[in-house]
Each structure stands twice: as C-alpha cells, then as structure tokens.
Design a protein around this nucleic acid. Sequence first.
DNA 1: CGAGTCGTTGAACGGAATCAATCGTCGTGG
DNA 2: CCACGACGATTGATTCCGTTCAACGACTCG
Lengths: 200, 200
Amino acid sequence: MLTNILDKLVSGSAETRELDPHQFLFRQGDRAHYVFAVEDGHVKLTRYLSNGKSVVMLVARAGETFTEAALFSGLYHCSAVADVKSRVRAYKKKDILEALKSDPSLALEYAARLSRQVQRLRTQLELRNIQSAGERMLQFFLLEAHPDSLEFKVDVPLKDIAALLGLAHETFYRELARLESEGVITRQEATIKIERTGGI
Amino acid sequence: MLTNILDKLVSGSAETRELDPHQFLFRQGDRAHYVFAVEDGHVKLTRYLSNGKSVVMLVARAGETFTEAALFSGLYHCSAVADVKSRVRAYKKKDILEALKSDPSLALEYAARLSRQVQRLRTQLELRNIQSAGERMLQFFLLEAHPDSLEFKVDVPLKDIAALLGLAHETFYRELARLESEGVITRQEATIKIERTGGI
DNA sequence: CGAGTCGTTGAACGGAATCAATCGTCGTGG
DNA sequence: CCACGACGATTGATTCCGTTCAACGACTCG
C-alpha cells in the first residue's frame, strides 16, 4: 500500500475516488477544496490557454500527490483528467491546514516538500532553455534516470513526455530514434538506457 | 524600508552584504547556509549546464527573497551575481528553521509562500509551451502587468526578460517592435501598456 | 575619450512544428 | 469472434520562424 505525507497529516477524513478514463477530477477555475494523491493509474494536469491551446503541466503517477499548491489558493489553475482508469484519495484542504497548524514539525516537513517541488520546477524550466530537442531530451532522461544504472523506466505514453518537454511528439519520436541510432541511448521495452552523456 | 517575511522570522541574526556589479554572492555547488533578500539593486540567478551554456533562472529585485528553496537542501543549484551595485540581507538557514519550528503559524505562512512560488513557476513553465514568440511575450506581459491598467513597468534590462522567456534578445526586440507597430502594445519610457489582448 | 553594454535592425540558415499517411494494438460492441 | 474505432508510435515532406552571425548607434561609466 502506497502511503504519502498527506496520510500522515489527515489519516481519517480522506475519501477515495474512482476515475474512469477521461473523467475530470476537477476543472480549471473550480474552487479548490481538496488536495489529492494518486493511488492507482495516472492523472494528467492540463492548463488551458486563452487561445484555446492546452498545456500539460504534470502527469501524476501512483504514490504522487498533486494540487498541493492549491492549499493556499482558492481556485484550481488547471484541470485534472484521469488518463486511464485511476483511483485517487482526496484530502480536505481545511483538515490539512488544521493538522499543519497543530504540529509545527509537520508544517516544516510540508514546507520541505514544497521546497523540493520548487526545485523540480526550476529544473524543468531550465530544461526548456535547451534549444536542441535531442539535447533537451537527453538531459531530461539524465534527470529522471536512476543515477547509477542510468536507466529510465517509461511508464507513461511517450507522447506525454514529449508534451512535458514542450516538444511535438513527432519531433520526440524522431530524435529518440536518432539518439538510439547514434548509440547515445538504447531502448528495450519501456526502458531507456543512457549510454553516453557527452557531446551528441 | 523594505521588509520581508524573513525579517519577521529572524530579526536579529541577519547580516547585510554589499555587492559590486558582477560580484558573485555564491556559486553553483556551494554549500547553502543562507537565504537572501534583496534590499537594493538586483541579483541574477544563473544555472550553468554541462555543455557550458547558462540559463537565467530568476532576477530578484528589491524586496524579493531568493534561495528559499535551498532551506531544505544542502547546496545551491545556481550561481548568484549582482547585476548592478546591490545590497542583500543574508539570513542563516538554521536560524530560520529554528524560528519555523518554534512558531507553527510562521511555518504555515512560509509554506504558503513556497506554494505561491510553485504556482509562479508553473505559470512560467506554461508560458514556454507557447511557441510563438510574440504570443509568449504578450502572455507574459499580461501576467506581469497591473490587472486594471494593463501597464507593465520594465525595471530590468529587456535582455534579461528575453532570457527569462527563453528567447534570443534579437527576437524579443523584433517582436516587441512588431507588437507595437501593430498597436497591440504601446511603449513609453520603461512602461509597456497592453492595448489589445485578443488575436494578434 | 574609449570600453562595455543595451537596444536595434538586416540577412541567412537550420531545425522544429506542422500536415499527412501508415501500422499495430487494444478494447468494445455487434 | 471479428470489425471497427481510437489512439500510440512511427516516418516522410514541407513550411515557417526563431536562432545565429553581423553590424551599428546610443548611452553610461570609469
């Protein structure tokens, strides 16, 4: 059974929700009353722009929490959709805030989590400054891969990774093929292994 | 006198540092012992990639704090350089942690700050998913501008804004000129006013 | 007065987006 | 059980636009 920090905070009052594929958990602009954790499946957080285009902000997988940032803001700034059949736990914001208020060490731990999230986001942002699609992908794999084995297990559609990196999926596939053909990475099944990190 | 949340936390133990232009406050990889707030001038946070390129992560201006995320991590992940002659206050990490531990409401407020930072970063990231340089710039201005007047005061070099948006400065200037010539924005001095937000 | 940097414009190139088509797989329902 | 539709994965061709290289004026600061 996967546990997360939210269980530690509010063990009791959380509720479990089942989501069918493409079912919305909440929509951009909804009042935010809950923080969530994925128990099974994965949930895609998408933000819609004024020009009608959409942006995948995050794909939350089993064991991960999301909308933590909404704890202190009134509205959800993105929409959450279950990619596949999924199960999430919903924790009431006010229960969490209560718990944080009463236990300073928990509050601190929570701040630490947010802090790490800030760093992850910064890293993501940094990736976007790499112009070359191939290089950006490689750096991403390096970040995501196990530091020792340099292997990276792909458990979401490659399409979504492409979107996460801000690349057209065609470009992503193409560069993936090129990286493989040049021996920079190897692929078998859902695992990508980085062979060389140096200059492409 | 500008105050910030850090003063509230640790009024006493902070020290003030004067920085000359181009002087490093700390370097990427240094052990992180301090969290900073800009009192005067501005400090540029830059991250260096393995391929030698660099990325501007943030330009912290007077009144803003930075390296808050380093509170819970051992090393600075970027380098900080004063753009111009600047003055910063340095707060000891352990003092802050102490204060947060002793006062849960402060810890909560701090978490709220981090939380807002997460959202700002997400917004930044979202901006990068806009392909068109002009559209990306416009959305950025909309975010930064005063909601009512739709005016945006430029107080850092345009070059830096270009870098922040992940654009070559040439492109930035060009698109800025185009947006102005098409009447989407108007510029006088250091103020950009958005005239039309709709389709370019 | 020169060095340095910002702001600006021009021209050319390259690479990623885009449009388009195909294949395989999975699930669903008739 | 098979046909169909949906979607992921893949490759090809073309277009477009942002980067890059280059040059120049304006301004500040030492």
